[in-house]
Write a protein that binds this DNA or RNA. Structure first.
Lengths: 228, 228
DNA sequence: CAAATAGTGTCTATAAGACATTATTGG
DNA sequence: CCAATAATGTCTTATAGACACTATTTG
């Protein structure tokens, strides 16, 4: 005999970098519970519509932010009797990374960005979910190409290094960083494209190689000495 | 409006090491669908009984194998319209590690161990789930104390090294391995306890320090050069 | 030319692996 | 004493970081 109905939802932690701080996109809830509160974009799974929960997360993103296909990965499942006032619930959480410009240039109505530290007043266990996502991103960034998804399509190496440093929260040796990027073998220089305009030597623009648009490049060793 | 009922289950991938090969514990299903087939121990979440899905997984293990508190961690959630013939379903998968002797000495009825390679005929997407668990264990073992949970309470360093080698599938340099174990700082020698009986120098017995009974020790660097 | 930042060369420090040596048991 | 394996010392190689130097732009 099946169980009493369990509330099945999907939530998405959409992260981007503004300046040097990670921000999460929050969505003003349109219904109870917590109507009007900013919370993670999410909602019920639609079994008739969604082929699986990844598909549901992708739909959630599309509906609430208009964003089509960012880097999107399952984070984990949060569950229990006490996380939702409506009853025993399950939330399958996903996280997504995006260049901040994509949100800032055409902000979806009801969407606000907020720094991931000092989050307060989030409903459900959404604060825990955001913290888990941030930890996952930090950890995965220490040995993979993950942070490139926070950059736009083209970027310079100094810019990418700053993104890594912002995510990891510590400075990285420039020579080592460039050696690692070489080793990860995920970037290609854009022929003849340089970032100019400032009073210094122009920087080469790079882009992600096509084969890494959807999948990460991972290094056998950490980029930095620290780890979690 | 809530969704059409979704089937919510928990499955456990219980792994142990027999000789040098990882085995998974399979449970002969007592009901349809796939009645009689060996499958992952699992079942419906009981909202009245389980405080969350970890608790449900723990109960599943207890009920089907009699095992109380092994290392148990969430693996991920598998979902969709097509994985279960009964309808749209969610399985929150957990994995557990255990010394093989605990299963072999008093085998629960209906439980069989099977090598994780060449699994065939598993129902649902249980083969995918097992593969994901094995990959997780391999990956996590490369930089943490995870494999100690495959050993009994006391073990020698050569034995532990063999366990790591079996899990990772490659030989490890003895000196480097011992340096890493020193660095992980998770073992303590059992005073005066040596493994004797064979025609060679006896080996010191070690055990996990108390503070690592429940949590892992992680290294900033990989144990071996390889990675995933 | 000065200031600023990009990009590279090179030396040093640290970690990993190869290999050899010593230690301790049973037969 | 021999065989076997534990345990450790030490040299070599690989990787990471420090630091300095060159390159190229604007004003």
């Amino acid at each position: 005999m099946p169980q009493k109905a369990i509330i099945c939802t999907v939530d998405v932690v959409l992260l981007c970098l503004r300046g040097t701080v990670l921000n999460v996109a929050l969505w003003r809830r349109e219904r109870a519970p917590f109507e009007g509160s900013p919370a993670l974009p999410g909602g019920y799974i639609h079994p008739e519509e969604d082929v699986d929960t990844l598909d549901a997360a992708s739909r959630m993103l599309r509906e609430k932010t208009g964003i089509a296909s960012p880097y999107l990965e399952q984070l984990g499942t949060f569950s229990g009797a006490s996380r939702d006032p409506r009853g025993w619930s399950i939330s399958i959480a996903y996280y997504a990374l995006l260049p901040a410009e994509l949100i800032e240039q055409e902000p979806a109505p009801g969407l606000v960005l907020q720094a991931v530290e000092q989050l307060k007043g989030l409903p459900f266990d959404h604060k825990d979910i955001v913290q888990a996502a941030v930890q996952r991103v930090r950890n995965k960034s220490s040995y993979s190409s993950l942070p490139v998804y926070l950059c736009g399509e083209q970027f310079t190496l100094p810019r990418l290094q700053a993104v890594y440093e912002a995510v990891l929260g510590e400075p990285i040796n420039k020579v080592s960083f460039r050696r690692k990027m070489e080793e990860l073998d995920m970037l290609e220089a854009v022929e003849g494209a340089m970032e100019t305009g400032r009073a210094n030597r122009p920087a080469q623009l790079y882009r992600l190689k096509h084969e890494f648009q959807q999948c990460l490049s991972v290094s056998p060793r950490s980029l930095t000495a620290a780890a979690g």
